[in-house]
Design a protein around this nucleic acid. Structure first.
Lengths: 274, 274
DNA sequence: AGCTTTTTGGAACTTTCATTCTGTCTGCCG
DNA sequence: CGGCAGACAGAATGAAAGTTCCAAAAAGCT
């Protein structure tokens, strides 16, 4: 069998033959495509370690595609690295300028990526350890963590529900399916907690349900975009996330980042504290 | 003498001390700056050959700058090649460990923010104008855009549904509420389009519904994490988003960024083209 | 269920590589 | 002109890497 001559050919070949490959060899194929840099720079042993495979499997993999051994295969990944655009900052500049012409969607992509990056940078500066600690305290002592976010904020609360479930934390997502939002939150009490998320224009349902929960003394962590947010007054702990926007669409990157931080920190605390 | 920590520092150091270096060492310095790729990927012997020098000279060169040997020096060149941030993996490790044993949640936040930022940077490099254009073409000619993403990917498809609705694009979210996923997608035909999103471990429902849609010739734009993804083969256009992960949680920033780019570009195209 | 074939993990083997060491050479100062 | 110090090339060395092989396990087939 004749081995692929460049990275693209290799990629195609792998896509083609992967289904009929043994398990471990599939594993290697997936790893190779996901970590091409590692394949290029690492040693057979280190790559094998990261891919959870024996070094000999790497050799077998290479041979099954037609190479004589791992080293030959690695040469493909190395040449890919050589031919990659020489200098990063220059390329970035060129990309920005070239994309300025209208109708180029890469311009949009760059814009959204920039604004997300900016949001993340600002998040890091604006969130204090103290507020994080207080939020995690409040959540740690909760029997059930309720998650509320509608419309734009719904992706965040849904992702939190997913993450908390994975982390073994009891959480309930208020998704308002069938307009049962109020009922979904009805049993939240003072030994639970609510994470309420809303941005301008604030969804009335989110405000109303948060208000009701606050009236029942449910500890509330609020993620919003302004200290003047209608949610602010209900908050035991409040985070203001200033997402920069590009065009009229705000990124949610910083909000997600904060959310997952809360989730993981909470799980860690539970694991430590018993 | 303390060795430079990254490529730029090394460059400066070399320029500074080059005049007072012995002849062969100057030769090596010049070669190193002119052929950084060779320095990164070659062996001591091959580099020595190209630079018309003995291998031992390379070692002495490295030591004269403060490294323990050629291998340490080579690491600098390799990390330059790996990605724009030379110390990214180390930084990640450090943050992770700090976050783990200090219990300081701001380290977690920094880690997630970093990994999101890295994902965004990589996204910009990996997405080509050509694939964006093809995706937008496919979506523009669709009567209805169907959005499919479950579990981890659900936040993305939900957000897309929100954004497309705001932009005046007819879109249907396959949320599988009440297990009506198949029925929600039942009327999609060849003049519609589907955006299918899934990451490992791929949700069976997403794969199955995408397969069914593909069988009915629905044009499909796939967002996934590997060319070997089970979704890949159904795709008319495929995006591979390599999100870096921190701990065991992947950021979704790059995926959101790509999604919103598609949405806005689509709306723009519709507005222009009539 | 038993046999055959394929696949896998691990150790042994061989090669390659970086590094050290030694003798020689060159340039400089006495 | 002779001696000294630094630099150099090339061989020797020891470590690390890639590869091969074999036995055990798994998968497939009758």
């Amino acid at each position: 069998m004749t081995p692929p001559v460049d990275f693209d050919a290799l990629k195609l070949r792998l896509i083609e033959i992967q289904p009929e490959l043994p398990k471990r060899l599939q594993q290697v194929a997936a790893f190779a495509l996901e970590h091409p840099d590692e394949m290029a720079l690492g040693t057979a042993a280190s790559v094998a370690g990261h891919a959870r495979v024996q070094a000999s499997t790497l050799v077998r993999f290479a041979q099954s595609i037609g190479f004589s051994g791992f080293s030959d295969l690695q040469e493909i990944f190395r040449s890919r690295l050589r031919n990659r655009w020489p200098d990063y900052p220059e390329r970035m500049m060129a990309l920005h300028e070239k994309a300025m012409d209208s109708g180029d969607p890469t311009h949009l992509l760059a814009g959204f990526a920039d604004s997300a990056t900016a949001s993340l940078a600002r998040l890091r500066e604006s969130v204090t350890r103290e507020s994080l600690d207080r939020a995690i305290d409040a959540l740690t002592s909760a029997r059930t963590v309720y998650l509320l976010g509608q419309r734009r904020a719904f992706p965040v609360s849904h992702y939190l529900a997913y993450a908390l479930a994975k982390l073994g934390v009891r959480a309930t997502l208020i998704d308002n399916v069938g307009s049962l939002g109020a009922e979904q939150l009805a049993h939240a009490g003072r030994d639970d907690a609510l994470i309420a998320i809303s941005f301008a224009p604030y969804t009335p349902l989110t405000i109303e349900l948060t208000r009701q929960a606050a009236a029942r003394d449910v500890p509330i962590v609020v993620i919003t975009d302004s200290p003047l947010s209608p949610l602010a007054s209900f908050a035991k702990v409040r985070f203001e996330v200033a997402e920069s926007d590009f065009g009229s669409f705000r990124s949610l990157s910083a909000t997600f980042c904060l959310a997952i931080t809360l989730a993981v920190a909470l799980a860690n605390r539970r694991a430590d504290g018993g």
